[in-house]
Design a protein around this nucleic acid. Structure first.
Lengths: 351, 351
DNA sequence: CCCTCTGCTGTTACCGATAGCACTAGGACA
DNA sequence: TGTCCTAGTGCTATCGGTAACAGCAGAGGG
């Protein structure tokens, strides 16, 4: 067993296996991918050689000829948010079963970073690519179209898709939640959102909020924007509550663009002696576990995080099999989870 | 621009760029990796051709010659647990900056699945591999050693490392937490653990618990094992509480191997009218956000999830640069976070 | 004016696998 | 007995790059 100076061995090559078995590489290759075409005796000999050398085929080399890497690249804004990890898990499940590898990268919510990452991901010639959201630079779109690989955009639906998309309507979801708050009796509803310039999910949610308010004949309040969306921590929600106390003390409900913020807000209210849901209604987004645990429990929007990942995986597989047509779009919907934090007139829990 | 029947283009090749620029592939290759060796005029011409064709180099092909893929493979038990996602994010940060790609796979906590995944990951000739835990099949160890690539095992420290390791001592962590509960006045302390046969983290935590009890002259209670560890949901913790009410009603504290379980337990206690921390002390593990939000707030063990990922990344980079020696091991420690759920004699919050 | 050196670019071989075709031996068939 | 067919296996080229060395022109030195 030869070992070079850096002690990197990389296992044996197909040629070594072939030599040991007394055949050519081609026969070894056949044993691996079309065993029925090889004489059982020869096959056994080759398999013995493979076992003896602990040979692991090099898919990179095979892929060169085949023109495919067996890799799917995925870009998420961050891994430090279980909601995106859920989508990745769903994707990974489906892809792994099909023998495809998953190659991950995080963009920190910035489209220019995303562009450079896509460029570097493409150097690995993925068989498909999964993106989060529909907002990308023009160069990104052109690059992806030029490569002609299946691209699935997740977490939103819309018309301007690069290729395919699976998601839900953030506009409708925010609309529905706002309407739910209004139905519960809240009138001065504030919306705490992420940056709307780089994130169409945030933009669409804002539109949904504003539309619902308008339909109810209520004034939409100025949207409170959380700048550093990468820092998704409860304290950000707490800070928003403290800020709103000054800028808009008459607000009677706050709808947060993430459960993480909403939960921080609930804790802040507890400290400040603000009764939730009596004095202030609170709603979140994502349906994270934390919202089920906090007291009062959090009203939120459930999003199909895992399912989007799975669906994206299936769309890719179908497409690679030549079935799924381009421009396929799937709306997986959402649901409003009404819990204690928006149940006006119920307990005024603040401890 | 040629496009084959499946509409997969894969961008242009270096040969096409070369033809357009009126040079050979070799010159294009040089422009990309040692531009200073190419005449500025030629270089400009080549760069124009690259831009015009939107050429993206194929690292797979380059890697074939170089004998490296620029990819690092990581295996985590599951992505649906933010704690492992944190480790991945740390790893990803470091690797991405160094131009390495991260290739992820989840093992569902089973070493046999892990083995087959490692085999399939190795087909992609990663430059390094990151594993979770120290428990692997013999075949896995041999395979990895045979490949001679840097391997970092995370989330535990110990002697039987394949190559390198970064983690903390689960034994000491569980020991410290148990001791903390004893110090708080609890005596009949139960431990709810994951399966100890496939997961040395669970095994070591059990040992730490037992040792701490023994040192205090207290009897270690039979360990309550949560079988389906993959289902890491609060309800599992709630179920454990209900079970313990029957099997060991005199227990005065429960130490859970995960905050997720501990939080479910706290909610169950609230429903059952069991006062926490008065009647029952509760402690968790991991220091998840959820433990900061639940009431009473959760006493837990903080583990360096993100840092382990980062450190693993740095160890790999150092090793690839020929610096880091084999068998390097790093203990990043842990810390006990004492919060309300184990503060005996304080409030008996059960709402 | 010749030689050597330097700077730049091209040629050839090869990384590890696979597609496509060629070839061989033995059996079926007329 | 000759022809055709069918397994089973090998040969060659190729995927898209890179390493190593070769070649060539102009500059500088003697």
């Amino acid at each position: 067993m030869p070992t070079d100076k850096t002690s990197r061995n990389f296992g044996s090559t197909m040629a070594e296996v072939a030599a040991l078995a007394g055949v050519t590489k081609m026969t070894v290759s056949r044993v691996l991918r079309q065993p029925e075409k090889v004489n059982p005796e020869t096959r056994a000999r080759v398999q013995a050689a493979i076992a003896e050398l602990a040979y692991v085929p090099n898919r990179l080399a095979g892929g060169l000829t085949a023109g495919s890497s067996g890799l799917v690249a995925a870009i998420v804004p961050t891994l430090r948010h279980s909601i995106f990890a859920d989508t990745l898990e769903g994707l990974s499940d489906v892809l792994t079963q099909a023998g495809l590898g998953l190659f991950v990268s995080s963009s920190a919510y910035q489209t220019d970073i995303e562009e450079s990452q896509i460029r570097s991901l493409l150097e690995r010639r993925p068989d498909a690519m999964v993106l989060t959201g529909l907002t990308h630079t023009t160069a990104t779109r052109e690059l992806l179209r030029g490569f002609g690989i299946p691209v699935v955009e997740t977490w939103e639906t819309g018309d301007q898709v690069v290729d395919m998309a699976v998601g839900y309507s953030n506009r409708e979801a925010a609309h529905a939640m706002t309407a739910e708050l209004i139905r519960s009796g809240y009138r001065r509803i504030a919306f705490v959102n992420g940056p709307m310039d780089t994130n169409e999910r945030a933009r669409h949610r804002a539109e949904g909020y504003q539309a619902a308010m308008a339909e109810a004949g209520l004034p939409a309040l100025p949207i409170h924007v959380v700048r550093d969306e990468a820092a998704i921590v409860p304290e950000t929600g707490a800070r928003a509550i403290r800020a709103l106390q000054h800028t808009a003390p008459d607000v009677d409900a706050v709808f947060f663009t993430s459960d993480v913020f909403a939960v921080g807000a609930i804790l802040a209210c507890r400290e400040l002696g603000i009764g939730v849901p009596g004095q202030l209604g609170i709603a979140g987004f994502h349906d994270l576990e934390v919202g089920r645990v906090v007291s009062p429990t959090l009203t939120t929007v459930h999003v199909p995080a895992l399912e989007m990942g799975r669906k994206a995986g299936h769309m890719i597989l179908a497409r690679l099999a030549g079935k799924q047509p381009p421009h396929a779009r799937h709306d997986l919907g959402f649901s409003i989870i009404s819990r204690e934090s928006s149940r006006r007139g119920t307990n005024q829990d603040s401890a």
